[in-house]
Design a protein around this nucleic acid. Structure first.
Length: 399
DNA sequence: TCTGGGGTCCTAGGACCC
DNA sequence: TCTGGGGTCCTAGGACCC
């Protein structure tokens, strides 16, 4: 039987900002007051990214609007996120874990799984080890984590979500009926809003009820998802802890604008910025994209997307931008635009380029070396050092 | 002051081929 | 003037996660 642990930072963004503020001499620990981490409302980024326990008690939920959160808390303090700092804290936590075992899988900035099975004999009782790890993270880094211990990833993840903060919980196989079956159906990992609603309509309101549901009955409503749902509810999961970080399958970026965009030149300038960003990280990962995609969100928050498979994989900014503009024009219905997004998928690490005409090859060579020079300059002198003429024109004309 | 940003995986339908 | 079915690839969109 495997022993798997799930480490989860309590209120990650809020805790990390609390640590940052305390280090800067801020007089209160924002974990102890009505506080949230939230975006800039004037930029239309006004949602709750993380909340303090007291804000949570007053009903504040992640992803709701700051206005809504303010309505629920009389003395709400709102702090902006500091992503580079979060990245640093995250790395430090994983460094602590890596001291003990290489056998862990990072799943997001504030979470990982440890496969304890093999190091069991080395470090002994898993519960004692979990406490040691949790306390070391708190003492050296200043924030708390929850640790869930179980026989698979799903149950470890469920266990770390039990009582918070700063706790160690187990959810061994034999504890599943007692600890997991009473949970509300929406609390099951992998069951979101929509699925929970559908299940409730079928009078399935707890994890236990789903665990005992008839597959043939559920199949009518969930097709091939019926069995995976039942297995999850039964706490069955064979997926392994994958330690070597696998490369992402796609690279994307998007931006919500402070004002809706209507004019093509402005739209093109923004598309260019987005393309430069994704193409840059594509080249940084030494890969090429075969599929280019564009996303538009209109003023009514409706989202559309359009994608296209290229003849040849590429990492050239200009080549991607050309495709992005084409896709955009095919997609856009001239409604004012709230958000633009660009995605690169179908990533390969080798350049499987079909043989093309000599001249074409030459153009590719040239623009490839131009991209490299630009990337290098940006790395040395920062993002702002190089702006394409069209962007400069825009900036100048604004001033 | 309505509703962020970056991902993964799945499904359904159409095109195309045999 | 008729016509089945399987396989594969591609695209759009939905659901879910942090």
């Amino acid at each position: 039987m495997r022993i798997i642990m799930h480490i989860d930072v309590n209120n990650a963004f809020l805790s990390w900002t609390a640590v940052e503020l305390l280090q800067q001499g801020y007089p209160v620990d924002i974990r102890t007051i009505e506080a949230v981490i939230g975006g800039d409302e004037s930029m239309r980024h006004g949602i709750v990214l993380a909340k303090s326990p007291i804000a949570k008690k007053k009903g504040v939920k992640t992803a709701e609007t700051l206005r809504e959160a303010r309505r629920k808390c009389d003395h709400l303090k709102i702090f902006p996120p500091n992503y580079p700092w979060y990245q640093k804290m995250s790395q430090k936590m994983f460094d602590v874990i890596a001291k003990y075992t290489p056998d862990f899988e990072i799943i997001s900035i504030d979470e990982c799984f440890i496969d304890y099975t093999l190091v069991h004999r080395l470090y002994g009782d898993p519960i004692a080890f979990a406490h040691r790890l949790k306390d070391e993270i708190y003492q050296t880094l200043g924030f708390t984590v929850n640790v869930g211990i179980a026989n698979n990833k799903l149950c470890a993840k469920m266990a770390s979500d039990f009582e918070k903060p700063n706790k160690v919980h187990t959810l061994w196989k034999e504890e599943i009926p007692e600890k997991m079956y009473p949970l509300e159906i929406g609390e099951l990992y992998g069951v979101g809003k929509k699925t929970a609603m559908k299940l409730r309509e079928l009078s399935i309101t707890t994890v236990g009820e789903l665990a005992h549901a008839e597959e043939t009955f559920l199949k009518r409503y969930f097709k091939n998802q019926a069995l995976p749902l039942i297995l999850k509810a039964q706490g069955i999961d064979e997926s392994p802890v994958v330690s070597e970080s696998s490369e992402s399958k796609g690279i994307s970026t998007s931006r919500t604008f402070a004002y809706n965009l209507r004019e093509l030149p402005v739209i093109y300038q923004n598309l260019q910025l987005l393309v430069e960003k994704v193409a840059n990280s594509l080249r940084e990962s030494n890969r090429y994209a075969k599929v280019v995609g564009v996303t538009i969100r209109d003023k009514n928050f409706k989202t559309y997307s359009h994608q296209k498979r290229l003849l040849n994989a590429t990492s050239h900014t200009e080549e991607i931008l050309k495709t992005v503009k084409e896709l955009f024009l095919e997609l856009w219905d001239e409604e004012p635009i709230r958000l633009l997004g660009v995605s690169l998928t179908g990533l390969t690490s080798s350049l499987e380029r079909q043989l093309s005409l000599f001249e074409e090859e030459e153009i590719v060579e040239k623009s490839s070396s131009l991209d490299k020079v630009l990337d290098e300059l940006k790395k040395q002198y920062g993002e702002d050092i190089i702006k394409k003429a069209s962007l400069l024109d825009h900036n100048l004309s604004k001033k």
